[in-house]
Simulated assay, not measured.
Amino acid sequence: MTLENLYKTKALHKEPADKLEFNGLVQSAVDRLTDAENTDLSYASRFDLAYNAAHGLALAALRSAGYRTDKRYLVFQCLAHTCNISKSQIRTFSLCHDRRNRAEYGGYLEQDEALLHELIDNTQILLRSVRSLSL
């Protein structure tokens, strides 16, 4: 579905982009991504930081396109229309969203260092893509 189709189904809401909000989301993501790379932190903390950095960047991309959503997972699915990243990268973000939910609501976080590294690497790629967006 396109962003406009998601708007028509009420999954997205139109809202003008805000440069200050965009910059804040990106800076928060940069800070979190930097902290996620700190191997002195626990796996759970690093995963949470990396996931939230990715989510913030995906939200910044959606907001730069003039949309907002109440559905947390949707910002990752919208990346196909807001950023120049691969379907494989989007699948990684979606998998991490599922793992985050399992930890947040079920109390279980599977430690998978390879997935965490993939999340951090893909979030760095997403950061470069989001920084190329113009407001």
Score class of each variant (00 low, 15 high):
residue 3 L to F: 00
residue 7 Y to H: 14
residue 9 T to N: 09
residue 10 K to P: 00
residue 11 A to D: 00
residue 11 A to H: 02
residue 11 A to F: 04
residue 12 L to K: 08
residue 13 H to W: 06
residue 14 K to V: 14
residue 18 D to A: 03
residue 18 D to C: 06
residue 18 D to E: 12
residue 19 K to R: 10
residue 20 L to Y: 01
residue 24 G to E: 13
residue 24 G to L: 14
residue 25 L to P: 00
residue 27 Q to W: 03
residue 28 S to C: 11
residue 28 S to N: 13
residue 29 A to E: 05
residue 31 D to C: 05
residue 33 L to G: 03
residue 33 L to N: 08
residue 39 T to W: 03
residue 41 L to K: 15
residue 42 S to N: 14
residue 43 Y to A: 01
residue 43 Y to N: 01
residue 44 A to L: 08
residue 45 S to E: 12
residue 45 S to R: 15
residue 45 S to V: 04
residue 46 R to T: 08
residue 46 R to Y: 04
residue 47 F to S: 07
residue 49 L to E: 14
residue 50 A to C: 06
residue 53 A to T: 07
residue 54 A to L: 05
residue 54 A to M: 10
residue 58 A to D: 02
residue 60 A to W: 09
residue 61 A to L: 05
residue 62 L to A: 04
residue 66 G to V: 02
residue 66 G to E: 09
residue 66 G to S: 04
residue 66 G to M: 09
residue 67 Y to E: 08
residue 70 D to G: 04
residue 71 K to R: 13
residue 71 K to H: 11
residue 75 V to S: 15
residue 76 F to R: 04
residue 77 Q to C: 03
residue 79 L to W: 01
residue 80 A to K: 15
residue 80 A to C: 02
residue 80 A to I: 08
residue 83 C to H: 03
residue 84 N to D: 08
residue 86 S to L: 05
residue 87 K to N: 08
residue 89 Q to R: 11
residue 89 Q to N: 15
residue 91 R to A: 05
residue 92 T to R: 14
residue 93 F to D: 00
residue 94 S to D: 06
residue 94 S to E: 08
residue 96 C to H: 10
residue 99 R to Y: 08
residue 100 R to H: 09
residue 100 R to A: 03
residue 100 R to K: 13
residue 101 N to M: 11
residue 101 N to Q: 15
residue 103 A to H: 06
residue 104 E to K: 13
residue 105 Y to H: 03
residue 105 Y to A: 02
residue 107 G to E: 07
residue 109 L to C: 10
residue 110 E to S: 06
residue 115 L to C: 07
residue 115 L to W: 07
residue 116 L to C: 11
residue 116 L to E: 11
residue 116 L to W: 12
residue 117 H to Y: 13
residue 118 E to A: 15
residue 119 L to R: 11
residue 122 N to W: 09
residue 124 Q to I: 02
residue 129 S to C: 09
residue 131 R to N: 12
residue 133 L to D: 01
residue 135 L to Y: 09
